[in-house]
Amino acid sequence: MKILLKFLVLVFIFTFQANSAEKVEYLKTDWSFKGLFGKFDRGSLQRGYQVYTEVCSSCHSMKYLSYRNLSEKGGPEFSEAEAKAIAASFEVTDGPNEDGEMFTRPAKLSDKFVKPYENVKAAQAANGGAYPPDMSVLVKARGGGVDYIYSLLLGYEDAPSGMKLDEGVHYNKYMYGNKIKMSKPLSDGLVEYSDGTIASEAQMAKDVTTFLMWSAEPHLESRHQMGFKVIVYLIILTILVYFSMKRIWSRVESEV
């Protein structure tokens, strides 16, 4: 009986926390990729990659992305030379060579993004037992999508009075349960954008979230274009069917 009561109490607590989290209104911003005609902002994607590389990549991997994706149409669209230079700035393990030994070499366009840790255990050991999630499809894996990620990055605050946080745990207004082990990642001027854009905390949050949206949906623009073509096709087909049926029924009525 006691076990059942404890179970019911835990279910109530988790349900209450989930409902409380769902009621939080996320921060809003203008996303260029929203809507039927939405497209990614190339500048924002390139800046977002810079934020990921300089801030996020030390803990978070993006295992589904290859360096060649950075130059593909619909993405950041770096030139091929720029993408090659980006890849070459990272070292990857390859081999074995003729002597049967593994070796390191500069990454190529065909290589996947370099991971910050060799395995899950190494990641947990370096982060106080917490495992930094892979960010490749993080936007799709979280309720609220881009609005949630954007809000989370800007949601660090002092904990309310009376709320106790364990060592290494931080308060975040938009995190489920309001407790997060990741320390505040962004601050004004943390990176220096190569295009001269002012790197405010909100700007960096928007740019890196845009980049994460692209990594989760790299074919979003082509999908939008296809959807528009399908709608136009259906409209034309509907008009043709309407006039065809009208003509057919006009003959039937005249015969009657």
Rank of each mutant, 00 (worst) to 15 (best):
E54R: 10
W249A: 05
F228L: 14
E101F: 01
A88G: 07
S66A: 12
E192M: 02
E72G: 02
Y233M: 06
V208D: 10
N97E: 11
L5D: 11
S58F: 05
N69H: 08
A202P: 03
E221D: 10
G177W: 05
S161K: 15
V9M: 00
Y193N: 15
G189K: 09
S110Y: 00
M135N: 09
K112C: 01
L45C: 02
I3S: 14
S250T: 05
V230E: 09
E255F: 09
I13R: 02
L153W: 01
L109T: 08
I231F: 05
I86G: 03
G196S: 13
V252S: 06
A122G: 13
T93Y: 01
G162S: 11
Y176R: 09
K28E: 12
H219E: 14
T210C: 06
Q203R: 15
N127M: 08
L138M: 11
L190M: 14
Y52C: 04
E98C: 04
P160M: 06
S194I: 15
G177S: 09
F103C: 08
E255S: 15
S244D: 06
E25D: 04
Y242K: 08
F113C: 04
K34S: 10
F243H: 12
V146F: 05
I235T: 12
F14Q: 12
R42D: 02
I86M: 00
E101P: 00
V24M: 12
V230A: 13
I198L: 08
R47G: 08
M163F: 01
F16G: 14
V11I: 15
Y26H: 06
E82A: 03
F7V: 15
L220M: 11
G196V: 08
V191C: 07
I239V: 13
K206T: 14
K28H: 10
K164D: 08
A216C: 02
K84T: 10
K23D: 11
N69S: 11
S183T: 12
K246R: 15
A141Q: 15
G143S: 13
P106L: 00
K115R: 13
R105K: 15
V232L: 00
G38N: 07
M175L: 05
E80C: 00
A141T: 11
E118W: 00
L109R: 11
S61Q: 07
P218V: 05
Y233D: 14
R247T: 09
F40L: 03
V230F: 09
M226Q: 13
N172R: 04
L8V: 13
Y148S: 13
L237W: 08
K28R: 11
N178A: 11
E98L: 02
S254D: 12
G189N: 14
A122C: 08
S89T: 15
L4H: 13
T210D: 09
I198T: 15
E167S: 05
K39F: 02
G145I: 07
S187T: 12
R247Q: 08
L154D: 13
I236Q: 01
F14E: 09
V11M: 05
I248P: 00
I248G: 00
Y64V: 06
G155H: 05
Y242Q: 10
L186G: 07
G43P: 01
L186V: 04
S151E: 02
V24P: 03
S194R: 14
F243G: 07
K39G: 04
F40G: 08
Y26V: 05
K206Q: 10
W214G: 05
L220V: 03
G75C: 07
F78Q: 04
E221W: 01
R105P: 01
A202E: 14
A122F: 07
M213K: 06
K229G: 08
V232H: 00
L8W: 05
